[in-house]
Simulated scan of single mutants.
Amino acid sequence: MVMKGQMIVVVGIGADGMAGLSPASKAELARATVIYGSQRQLDLLDGTVTPVRRAWPSPMLPALRTLLDGADGDVHVVASGDPLLHGVGSSLIRLYGPDRVAVLPHVSSVTLACSRVGWAVQDTEVISLVWRDLPTAVRRGGQAVVMSRDAGTPAALAKLLTDTGRGDSEITVLEQLGGPAERRRSATAREWATRPPGDVDDLNVIAVRYLPDERQFGVLPDDAYANDGQITKQPMRALTLAALAPRPGQLLWDVGAGSGSIAIEWCRSGPGCRAIAFERDDKRRARIAANAAAFGVQVDVQFDAPESFDFAPPPDVIFIGGGVTQPGLIEACFERLPSGGRLVANAVTVESESLIAQWYTAYGGELRRFAHYRGEALGQFTGWRPVMPVTQWITTK
């Protein structure tokens, strides 16, 4: 049982150990009765800190949930750098609320890294690979401080950047930042991937300037994606993204995903946007995964719909870009759409157009038809060539 008034006090500590702590942080540790943290962080405390020290078990989350159970008074936690930057401080606040958790931050590894390479912190993206997959650290320009999972992260990231056409990216690996064993090494991603050092410390971050800089905000051109022609073309992709109306943290089901362009644009559109791409063709599934990795977005590629729907987390929004006429597909999508969820379906054939018109009649929403023309050479002149029209149904359940 949690006693009224109990607090969790999280103290940030750097690689310089006790020497870098503020007087307030030292005072908190001095009055503690029990201190939790990783073994590495606990080992940074010296003999002046006498409370019981308890290393986090693995997995750590169950221990966080019971941190105050049976405790007599406040509980203290030591954490690396700024505990609110991809750290345990944020997790504890989510579990116990801001009124029960006090955080005394140290200088973050991100700020230290930026100070070493001369970057403004506000112009630098922060990417954590501690819990996220490696491809989420791929960018097509800009600069970022990447928080590593372990000693192998720099080499793995360098290889992935090289494999996705970003081998000229400039990487600086900074180890034991702020401590007596601090070390800094720089190379291009290609050079690091070719000859990765074997003595990288587990405590490292990577400052990356992504090259070439091919950043583009808004809907990308078709040739940005590897595809076999099965792709929602750029103008229609822009209209479809407007209809899907992504919001931060939402999950999209992209059904009949083709090259995955809609799923990838969805993920690029805002923070925390995730997508699951359903595609029956195995070559296209591999292509979707490669496209997602090249843009550093989180797209889970699944087998054919609707058979694999039961194994996927529930969506916020569903897009049907292919397979509209497959028997039972729209029914299965509509059934799994939560109340208030949005469904968008595009149709290019008479048969698929007829089907979504029937659903529009039965369930309402909006029905739109788009047709546009492209200027192309006509002898010595320019003429208009029509692009196949698309019918779109939009509904909210």
Rank of each mutant, 00 (worst) to 15 (best):
D46N: 14
G89I: 03
S91Y: 03
D150C: 11
D74E: 10
L95T: 08
A113Y: 03
T50K: 15
V77W: 02
G37K: 00
S80A: 13
S108N: 06
D16W: 07
R31F: 09
A55N: 07
S58K: 13
H106I: 04
L44D: 03
G81W: 00
A27V: 10
D150G: 15
V117S: 01
V101W: 05
L92G: 02
S58G: 08
D133T: 10
L44T: 00
L67Y: 01
P59R: 13
D82F: 00
V34D: 01
Q122G: 04
D72L: 12
Y36D: 03
V78S: 01
D150H: 10
W131T: 13
R94D: 14
S109G: 12
H106Y: 14
A71P: 05
P23M: 09
R140P: 04
S22G: 10
L61S: 13
S80P: 00
S91F: 06
D123G: 13
D43E: 15
G73T: 08
M18K: 06
D69H: 15
R65N: 13
S25I: 07
L112S: 02
S22D: 11
G118T: 08
P23N: 12
M18Y: 07
T124V: 09
R100T: 14
G97S: 11
A15C: 14
E28W: 08
D43G: 07
V121M: 11
A63H: 10
S115P: 00
S90H: 10
A144V: 06
P51Y: 07
D133S: 14
L64I: 09
P83I: 05
V146I: 12
W56G: 04
A30Q: 15
A156G: 08
R94T: 12
M18D: 06
P105D: 10
A137N: 04
V78Q: 04
L42P: 00
R139W: 02
V52S: 11
D69V: 11
S25W: 02
Q39D: 15
P23D: 12
V103F: 02
R149I: 02
T153A: 07
V88I: 15
I127K: 01
P62Y: 12
V78C: 05
A102E: 12
V110H: 01
V130T: 14
R65E: 15
V88H: 00
A27W: 08
L85S: 04
S90K: 06
W119L: 03
D133M: 04
A144D: 03
G87Y: 02
L92F: 07
T50C: 09
